[in-house]
Computed example of a mutant assay.
Amino acid sequence: MIVVEELLDIMQMEEIPFVDRFGMLVNIEHSNRKGNSLKHLIRNAGIRAARCVYWKY
Rank of each mutant, 00 (worst) to 15 (best):
Arg48Lys: 14
Val53Ser: 06
Arg51Lys: 00
Gln12Val: 11
Glu15Asn: 09
Leu41Phe: 13
Leu41Tyr: 10
Lys39Asp: 10
Leu8Ile: 05
Tyr54Ala: 13
Met1Asn: 00
Gly46Pro: 09
Val19Gln: 14
Arg51Tyr: 01
Trp55Glu: 15
Cys52Pro: 00
Arg21Tyr: 05
Val3Lys: 07
His30Leu: 10
Val3Phe: 07
Ala50Thr: 00
Val4Leu: 02
Glu29Phe: 06
Gly35Ile: 01
Glu5Trp: 02
Asn27Phe: 07
Asn36Thr: 03
Arg33Trp: 02
Arg33Ile: 09
Ala49Gln: 03
Val4Thr: 03
Leu8Ser: 08
Cys52Gly: 02
Leu41Cys: 04
Leu7Tyr: 01
Met13Arg: 04
Arg51Thr: 02
Arg48Tyr: 04
Val19Lys: 14
Ile47Met: 10
Ala45Arg: 11
Gly35Ala: 09
Arg33Pro: 00
Glu5Asp: 09
Ile10Gly: 06
Ile28Leu: 09
Arg21His: 07
Asn44Ala: 07
Ser37Thr: 03
Ile16Tyr: 13
Lys34Thr: 12
Met13Asp: 05
Ile28Gly: 01
Asp20His: 13
Leu25Arg: 02
Asn27Gly: 09
Arg51Ser: 03
Ile2Ala: 12
Ile16Thr: 15
Phe18His: 07
Arg51Trp: 00
His40Met: 11
Phe18Thr: 07
Glu6Phe: 07
Lys34Ala: 13
Val26Arg: 02
Phe18Ala: 09
Phe18Gly: 01
Glu6Asn: 04
Leu41Thr: 11
Gly46Gln: 06
Asp9Arg: 11
Tyr54Ile: 15
Phe22Arg: 11
Ala45Pro: 00
His40Asn: 14
Lys56Ile: 15
Ala45Met: 13
Ile10Gln: 10
Pro17Met: 06
Leu38Gln: 12
Val26Glu: 04
Tyr54Thr: 10
Trp55Ser: 12
Asn44Ser: 13
Phe22Asp: 10
Arg33Val: 05
Ile16Phe: 13
Ser37Gly: 03
Asn27Thr: 11
Gly46Glu: 08
Asn32Thr: 05
Lys56Thr: 13
Gln12Phe: 04
Arg51Met: 01
Ile28Pro: 00
His40Val: 09
Ser37Asp: 06
Leu7Ser: 01
Asn44Cys: 12
Ser37His: 02
Asp20Phe: 14
Asn36Arg: 07
Met11Ala: 07
Val53Phe: 04
Phe22Val: 12
Tyr57Trp: 10
Asn27Asp: 15
Glu29His: 00
Lys34Arg: 14
Phe18Arg: 11
Ile10Leu: 12
Ile2Trp: 03
Ala49Thr: 02
Phe18Tyr: 10
His40Ser: 13
Phe22Ile: 09
Lys56Ser: 14
Leu41Lys: 15
Glu14Pro: 00
Glu15Leu: 08
Glu5Met: 08
Leu25Phe: 04
Ile2Phe: 04
Arg33Lys: 03
Ile2Gln: 09
Ile28Glu: 13
Gly46Leu: 08
Arg33Asp: 07
Arg33Ala: 05
Lys34Gln: 10
Lys39Thr: 09
Glu6Thr: 06
Ile47Tyr: 02
Ala50Val: 03
Val26Gln: 02
Glu29Arg: 08
Asn44Met: 10
Met11Arg: 04
Arg51Asn: 01
Gln12Glu: 15
Val4Tyr: 01
Glu14Cys: 08
Val53Ile: 06
Ala49Arg: 03
His40Gly: 07
